[in-house]
Design a protein around this nucleic acid. Structure first.
Lengths: 220, 220
DNA sequence: ATCAAGAATGAATATTCATTCATTCTGGGT
DNA sequence: ACCCAGAATGAATGAATATTCATTCTTGAT
């Protein structure tokens, strides 16, 4: 294609300029991880290919192997990122220096766990894609266990505080924390697999109900 | 190879006789589905190949395409089988003409859901492998939704009976049923992904606790 | 004994995909 | 202006895999 002056112009200015851009390593890594997340959500973990991911990222095929050694490694790092993002968010709230009231802190946690950011189909698809492979891949189990354990400890600590403050009787913090975590995971699963049967609104109501039953003075 | 009489003998009698066996279609289908389940559990859904499945089943590669049209179809039918087995078991208990006491029936349900048969790594791996792909594959969503909905209705019906019998106040059967189902799913997930942190014994205690909190007269 | 129906086989085919690497390009330093 | 470290590219390669189908084998009926 030529313009009036006869000079050769770039083909499709709007459809992603072909100009090669050099960017720092860290930025490219994140760009590829983000693309991987979108691909897993849209096509499923088992259908993800390197071509797909790099095209989604608007980059060439070779680059993925430049920044991550292999596809396997890219997938592993993607899981690590997602897991840390989720658990990091939870932990921040539970440590929550900014929210002093324990009931409010619980509410904030619930909001985070069943709120917009986390319950995007995109993110949930990624969790469960990895969970599905975890049975066969110890590496995935390890990544998840590591961050999970810390979050579980923080949750238990929060529950202990609440139990003390409310002087609740016959309640075991550890057991309750396990139950609450499992409930949230199960609700995420429901939102992903049977969105028709379970709305976000109802999922929140169910989780809230669980907490109210355990800590009636703190919730509602 | 020939024996003294000069007749051709079978090669390796102990290492799986090579003798070609003709069996009815239904039997071969089940054989292949069982092999698929073992392969998914051991290698993960995304690593399963036709060669792997047919070798596991002790059959030739061609046969899978003879009885199922394609790999895709084999995987779909395997999911259907697993889903129906699980939900069928639940529904049988919940309809449970043989157990008249409602509390006992609840107990039987819990036993089934967190007991030996279901919580084998093998089975749980398969659930979650499919759940992981469900976000990207409407076919899987549909299969699970269909059986799931029926089980959810039966559970709600059971809870309604229990609420009436115990004259429990301020309890919504539907919401409680959703919560209980999600809790069980979450516990399965925990058993699969972080078996170190969550034993079967503790998972049962947690689920039982949930029920006791809701229906104190019926449980314990 | 013989035969036909159809169950089972597995070598061959065509496709898809991860990974490599020779080459090109960019931008900051001199 | 020039240079070059190293970032980026994408055609080429080789390995893996789903699917096909011509052929072989088994079984029950005649």
């Amino acid at each position: 294609m030529t313009d009036a002056s006869g000079a050769v112009t770039e083909a499709l200015p709007e459809a992603g300029s072909k100009r090669r851009q050099i960017r720092p390593k860290a930025e490219r890594r994140q760009q590829l991880i983000d693309a991987t997340i979108r691909c897993i959500a849209q096509h499923g973990l088992s259908a993800v290919t390197m071509q797909m991911v790099t095209r989604e990222a608007g980059l060439s095929v070779g680059i993925a192997n430049l920044h991550f050694k292999s596809k396997d490694n890219l997938l592993k790092e993607t899981l690590r990122f997602v897991a840390e993002e989720y658990h990091g968010g939870q932990i921040e709230i539970m440590e929550g220096g900014d929210i002093l009231d324990l009931g409010e802190r619980l509410d904030a946690l619930l909001d985070f766990q069943l709120g917009r950011g986390v319950t995007q189909r995109q993110k949930m698809s990624v969790w469960f894609a990895y969970y599905g492979e975890a049975g066969a891949r110890p590496v995935y189990q390890k990544i998840v266990s590591t961050v999970d354990r810390l979050a579980a400890q923080k949750l238990e600590a929060l529950f202990i505080q609440i139990i003390r403050e409310g002087n609740y009787r016959g309640v075991d913090a550890r057991e309750l924390a396990t139950g609450y975590s499992a409930l949230i995971d199960g609700l995420h699963l429901g939102l992903l697999v049977t969105p028709r049967e379970l709305s976000k609104r109802r999922a929140r109501a169910v989780a809230r109900d669980f907490l109210r039953r355990a800590f009636p003075q703190h919730i509602r």
